[in-house]
């Protein structure tokens, strides 16, 4: 009996599936199986003759089949209706016509990359701060261990406003301002505009952006600096990027380092962007010089720290493949639209 029922189910399914167009066929099938003299109905009728145990099993099965056929028939009916609509071309559209564009603008690429940088450092528990763009020479140089006659001043062509007041050449003075106002431990990044009176060309702009970082605490070491640099550049350029620190010189850090990443364009083989070296120098970094701590009243025997920083334009140029720094400031919509 059970087998018979299963067979019935299969044939009913097949028959329903085979219906192509005619609605009337659906009704025929319904009568054939579920009508008063239908095949399923018949079985339900002879149930009385069965033992109670059998009746339970068969009854359940027969009802299930009845419901399934019912469902299949109504689904088929919907399908047939839609088939009819499909062939009706009255409301046909040219779907290849352009859709209405959503008028969205774009952030400047420098803002975009800066946002990425901020997010990375926020996750590393850094605070974000800003400082003035017009600075005293004291904050821009002296407090950063760069006295007036130091040859390091030649490294940065400076715009002057008056005696003792300059357009900051780096974001580093923010370090001093933050340390003067706060006690350690601290962790900050300070993004912002900087100014240098270099002649304008494809890689020099009198106005540019830097991001500065500073960490001060107990037992902060060079190894931590290396680690933070690695984390940062990997998050910015990809998990597998190699980074390298090599000795360098900045008046306000010692030991100082230049932070390079393996050229993202040639993967270290050497190309014109990395000047055939396979490496891109991106950041300057180092352990905070004890003289800087002294200038802000921190005891270098108690606290250690590291600082790092670099140009944002260069990061954006590498990340987006931009070869001329001037494009950032020309604000040509054809450029801005691409980011």
């Amino acid at each position: 009996m059970e087998k018979e029922l299963e067979k019935l189910r299969e044939t009913a399914k097949k028959e329903i599936a085979q219906i192509k167009e005619k609605k009337e066929d659906l009704e025929l099938i319904r009568i054939k199986y579920l009508g008063r003299k239908g095949l399923v109905t018949k079985i339900l009728r002879i149930m009385k003759q069965l033992s109670p145990q059998e009746r339970k099993i068969i009854g359940k099965l027969a009802n299930e089949i009845k419901e399934e056929i019912d469902l299949l028939l109504s689904l088929k009916q919907e399908e047939l209706k839609r088939l009819i609509n499909k062939n009706d071309l009255k409301d046909d559209l040219d779907i290849t016509l352009p859709g209405k564009p959503l008028a969205r603008g774009k952030l400047h690429p420098l803002t975009k990359i800066l946002e990425e940088i901020k997010v990375i450092f926020e996750k590393l528990n850094f605070d974000i701060v800003e400082g003035p763009e017009v600075e005293t020479e004291y904050y821009n140089f002296e407090a950063l261990n760069t006295p007036p006659d130091h040859p390091a001043r030649d490294m940065q062509a400076t715009f002057y406003i008056s005696d003792g007041i300059v357009l900051r050449t780096q974001t580093s003075p923010v370090q001093i301002r933050v340390m003067e106002k706060n006690r350690p431990p601290l962790r900050i990044i300070a993004p912002g505009r900087c100014y240098r009176s270099d002649a304008i060309d494809a890689s020099h702009s009198p106005v540019f952006h830097q991001v500065e970082g500073l960490v001060v605490g107990k037992e902060i070491t060079f190894r931590h600096l290396k680690s933070i640099m690695k984390i940062f550049f990997r998050q910015l350029f990809g998990e597998d990027i190699e980074i390298r620190l090599t000795p360098s010189f900045f008046p306000f850090t010692e030991p100082s380092a230049e932070v390079s990443v393996c050229c993202v364009l040639c993967k270290g083989k050497g190309c014109s962007v990395c000047q055939q070296t396979g490496w891109l120098e991106l950041f300057g970094a180092g352990m905070v010089d004890p003289n800087v701590f002294k200038a802000v009243g921190y005891d270098p025997e108690e606290w250690t720290g590291f600082a790092f920083g670099g140009g944002i334009e260069r990061l954006a140029m590498i990340k987006y493949g931009i070869t001329d720094i001037r494009l950032f400031y020309e604000n040509d919509l054809r450029f801005l639209k691409q980011f």
Binding site: D127, P185, G217, I220, R223, R244, L245, P247, E254, D289
Partner: peptide, 29 residues
């Protein structure tokens, strides 16, 4: 003293100093 420390780091080679993820307490900002 710090100048000498830089000299030591330089000749020891920066590459030989392995990075260490700082285990610092979180600061509230």
């Amino acid at each position: 003293e710090i100048d000498l420390i830089e000299e030591i780091a330089r000749i020891y080679k920066y590459d030989e100093i392995t990075p260490a993820v700082p285990q610092w307490e979180s600061l509230e900002y």
